[in-house]
Design a protein around this nucleic acid. Structure first.
Lengths: 145, 145
DNA sequence: CTGCGAGTTGAAGTTCACTTCAACACAAGG
DNA sequence: CCTTGTGTTGAAGTGAACTTCAACTCGCAG
């Protein structure tokens, strides 16, 4: 088991295309050493970074935001449990929010799409007095609690 | 209360820019009649479609997929409760999946980022016998149950 | 020696979801 | 009559996240 991976190996293990990995490196999301003939060699812990990136994208973060999160990890050494734990804290609340949004959406769908009032604003069940139209545009009840 | 909205009114009520609404119309996601001087007039139930579109995007659907879903709604008449209910069924399971993904992610974060093994594949807690590396690339445990 | 596979680069192309722009039309108010 | 506001169009621009391409370099197998 080598302690560094070629770009092809990292691609195979992470399920991310080599071109995407080069792109991530350009953005500073992952780092690589170079061999004498200028090929990238990725330390194994970079695999964790790649996993982190893909999962973060699933949760709806941009590469820019992800870069911000990853910036708090140490550059030279393999991140410790503590490093990841610190990251996962900010992480945690983001996921909680996202889950809350979806659950709100789900409950509204049962109660509200059923009655045909997806606009929510004029729905007599959800908004009997029709006050929301003044508060601003968009499906606010759903998106912001 | 008029029974049709100008593009500006629809934009104000939905929180979506007029340019985006024109774009949606071009893609066939919403429909408009035209006045004698060629201005768009949107039936009020189009507002529901716009809400649906924005919420669908939050759940991670592309406009293409959303178009597919909306295609099952009737063209000429205002959709009935039944129409929306049919739509919300497919909808429901999509949201459930997404929530499940996030919850899986959350529990892994507590149990696994904490120990520094986001790659999951070589984590002794989650994968004691290290069998996953052969099954394919990517954070599979997380993404596909 | 001759491929072949895997790597390198910079530049350009692609898709998605819009936005911006220029040029125009019309209706109402001062 | 002129301005302002709101609408119209097609074409082009934008930003994010990549992918594709052409031209190149290595190391290795036959």
């Amino acid at each position: 088991m080598q302690d560094s991976l070629t770009i092809g190996e990292l691609a195979a293990r992470s399920g991310v295309a080599p071109s995407a990995l080069r792109y991530y490196e350009r953005l500073g999301l992952i780092q690589a050493e170079r061999t004498s003939i200028n090929q990238r060699r990725f330390a194994r812990h970079q695999l964790r970074r790649v996993s982190f990136i893909r999962i973060a994208q699933q949760v709806g973060l941009s590469l820019d935001e992800i870069a911000g999160a990853l910036a708090s990890l140490p550059q030279g050494r393999t991140p410790t449990k503590k490093d990841w734990a610190r990251l996962s804290a900010r992480w945690q609340s983001r996921i909680d929010e996202q889950i809350a949004l979806l659950e709100r959406l789900r409950s509204r769908l049962t109660g509200c799409i059923g009655c045909g009032c997806l606009s929510l604003r004029r729905c007599r069940i959800v908004n009997p007095t029709d006050t929301l139209a003044d508060e601003g545009p968009g499906p606010r009840q759903l998106l912001h609690e």
